[in-house]
Computed example of a mutant assay.
Amino acid sequence: MAATEETLAPARRASQRLAASNPAQNQRIRDPLRPWRYAGLALPVLFLAVIEVLVRASVLPAHLVPAPSAIAQTLWDLGGLRLARHVGASVARVCAGFALGSALALLIGAAMGLSRRADALLDPAFQALRAIPSLAWVPILLLWMGIDEAPKITLIAIGAFFPVQLGVVAGIHGVDRKLIEFGEVNRLTQRALFTRILLPASMPQIFTGLRTGLSLAWMFMVAAELIAATRGLGYLLSDGRETGRPDVVFGAILLLALLGKLSDGAFKAIETRVLSWRDARVGTGDGQ
């Protein structure tokens, strides 16, 4: 063993000197997908540029598909303060609804994942409720809670609840039985078994459910604001439709896409940091 370490030591030191002498090349080796990431960021800009050219060339009708420059001008004319109020109202509703729905889903999902009886009792009802469209909840919530913020936040919480709950249950059920048997052999308590084995092993599925729930929270937010709101991006969509302003409609859609991407990117960064211990598969080569 000592002889092997002595043999490999010069090669290891040479590799470290090479990496230190050429940090740019070392960075490219560590992140071979960097050019593709830049291309991924440039692709939406290229798409908008193509739409701009097609509209200016009268290939696409401007009264149906406004030019991106016209959309930008419309958003500018709305004013920063007014636009910030609409964006702030939608973001606040999504944050409140997502926090409420995901917290409840984590608790109930953990109970269903750990208890077969709870899973058998609650799963049929949740499967039926999950199939109800978002707009079907609106009249019920308006009838029960009025037209204030409560029905909007509740609707968003409903949208976030089901994918998170499903991710928690699937994550716990998908834990390798050998890991559980290993914990039992080492006489771990039920609490230690959950915190040391079940929870870490199910975290990838849980984060997938959380990210899916976040995206659905944005969708349900639009449904809530389309019905009963005087402020928010969903209200902008409805107002643009009623006044025949496709530039306002597309502007609200672009803002929703941007906010959804930013929130998902932030959540993905948290996921990468929390799950840095994973020995995940990383694709290499042109076909990956």
Rank of each mutant, 00 (worst) to 15 (best):
L155A: 02
A136K: 13
G171S: 03
E225K: 00
R17K: 14
D286I: 04
G265C: 00
S58M: 13
L46E: 07
V53P: 14
V59W: 11
R116G: 11
F267Y: 07
D239E: 07
L114M: 13
P139C: 11
T212V: 04
G109H: 06
D286N: 04
T189Y: 10
A280I: 06
S134A: 10
R191K: 06
P151L: 04
F126E: 01
G234Y: 10
R196E: 08
Q27T: 02
A266I: 08
I172F: 04
L254S: 08
R93W: 09
F126M: 07
E149M: 07
F194K: 05
D77V: 01
S276M: 02
I253S: 06
D176N: 13
W137Y: 15
V282Q: 09
D119P: 12
P204F: 13
E242C: 03
L33C: 00
A105V: 11
V169Q: 07
S90D: 12
L143A: 06
H173E: 12
G183D: 12
I206D: 12
M112Q: 11
A70I: 14
L214H: 03
G285Q: 03
A24R: 08
A2G: 06
F220H: 03
G251P: 15
A160I: 15
E52V: 00
S238E: 14
L43M: 09
Y38L: 14
P61I: 01
K178W: 05
I132N: 02
V282I: 13
I197W: 04
T284N: 04
A128Q: 14
I180Q: 04
R82F: 09
V55H: 00
V55W: 03
I29S: 11
D176L: 05
A84T: 09
G88P: 14
F207N: 11
H63S: 11
Q73K: 01
G232H: 10
V59A: 02
L210S: 03
W277K: 01
L256V: 02
L237R: 07
F162R: 01
P61S: 03
V55Y: 02
V59G: 01
A252H: 08
T272N: 12
L275A: 06
T189A: 14
E181N: 04
L43E: 05
G213A: 01
G265L: 06
I156K: 00
I147A: 05
E225I: 06
V138W: 05
A229L: 07
K268E: 14
L214R: 03
M1W: 14
L81K: 05
S15G: 12
L188T: 00
A170T: 09
A201G: 11
P133W: 06
A14H: 07
A201K: 09
R34Q: 15
L216G: 02
L43A: 10
P23F: 02
F220N: 06
L104S: 14
G285V: 11
A224H: 07
G88F: 01
A110Y: 02
T4M: 08
V55D: 01
L78D: 06
L78V: 01
H173C: 02
I147L: 10
I153A: 05
R211G: 00
G213I: 13
A20V: 04
A84P: 15
